[in-house]
């Protein structure tokens, strides 16, 4: 698998606090990668090292196979969780300034700004001051500032907070577009439903350590507890087949837990044999939210023990 970013045993200590403790993971090219973790887990410390704001104490970070160097910031676009723009500057000037700092020439910057303002249909904002814009509007400007220089790696920290559903969707489409055009995106968030929807791979950080990493679908499979939901067309009074336990008996649905060694096929065939009016049959995969909570709690217990 081709990786855009590889972390090898990266550690960072602030005064007496270990913020990042030997974290290793890699971010596949042209994918959307979720960087997850509870508050204070060390996500910001990690992002600051990836964006070259701070250096690693030990370990290595490779971007496209090269150790991070002073030219790399130009290949990275970072939108921090706490947004910030110069309030008194006009949108156009502001974007030009930030683009020039990312190494674009004045002309390149101008072209890129017009391209993006056009794309978001906000060309008339060019001469508006930032503090004339609403928060959601400012966020769009901030997003444009992040991607203007066509970065290979884009890091978005909670990109959807403060956006209404329409703009959130617009942004989601743009992120998807960037990925299609070959950019790799790291997505740091607490909103698990978005991670499930958008991310291909995740890493879960807790207390400065990598506690879970991999493909979202695979992780959900790994964490599955062999639970099934059967919806009936009408009320069904039959017996629960052997090898299964009824967890919940809803109005027209069962949630059952398969005991070790029992397969979904066995469940279906015995129900069919009992003439159950099956309308739908689903395996219940744990949500990332459940996995997140479970993994963090388990990790904290281990750490406390």
């Amino acid at each position: 698998m081709d990786s855009i970013l590889t972390l090898e045993e990266v550690s960072k200590t602030y005064e007496n606090k270990i913020a990042v403790d030997q974290v290793s993971f890699s971010v596949p090219k042209a994918g959307i990668f979720g960087l997850l973790g509870p508050n204070g887990a060390g996500k910001t410390s990690l992002i600051r090292m990836i964006t070259t704001i701070t250096n690693v104490d030990s370990g290595r970070i490779l971007l496209n196979g090269e150790p991070l160097n002073s030219r790399h910031p130009e290949a990275i676009g970072y939108m921090p969780e706490e947004r910030g723009l110069y309030k008194k500057m006009k949108v156009g000037e502001q974007l030009t300034y930030l683009a020039r700092l990312k190494g674009l020439s004045a002309q390149q910057a101008k072209d890129a700004i017009y391209y993006w303002l056009d794309r978001f249909e906000i060309k008339d904002w060019y001469d508006k001051k930032v503090d004339e814009l609403s928060k959601g509007m400012q966020q769009k400007v901030q997003f444009i500032a992040t991607v203007l220089h066509n970065p290979k790696l884009i890091i978005l920290d909670e990109p959807f907070t403060g956006l209404d559903p329409i703009n959130a969707n617009l942004l989601k489409d743009e992120i998807e577009n960037l990925r299609i055009n070959g950019a790799s995106i790291i997505f740091s968030t607490h909103r698990m439903e978005q991670v499930e929807e958008m991310c291909d791979n995740i890493v879960l950080i807790n207390q400065g350590r990598n506690i879970l990493e991999g493909n979202v679908t695979k992780i959900r499979q790994e964490y599955k507890q062999n639970r099934f939901q059967i919806d009936f067309a009408q009320a069904f009074q039959g017996q629960v087949p052997a090898g299964f336990t009824l967890l919940e008996n809803k109005k027209n649905a069962w949630i059952v837990q398969a005991q070790p060694g029992s397969s979904s096929n066995a469940l279906l065939s015995s129900l069919l044999a009992a003439n159950a009016p099956i309308a739908a049959f689903n395996e219940i995969l744990p949500t990332l939210n459940d996995i997140f909570i479970q993994a963090v709690e388990e990790n904290n217990e281990v750490a406390a023990a």
Partner: peptide, 15 residues
Amino acid sequence: EEKTNRIVEVMVSSV
């Protein structure tokens, strides 16, 4: 002002 504005967070990833 730059610190309160959080513009630094964006700036330091470039310079």
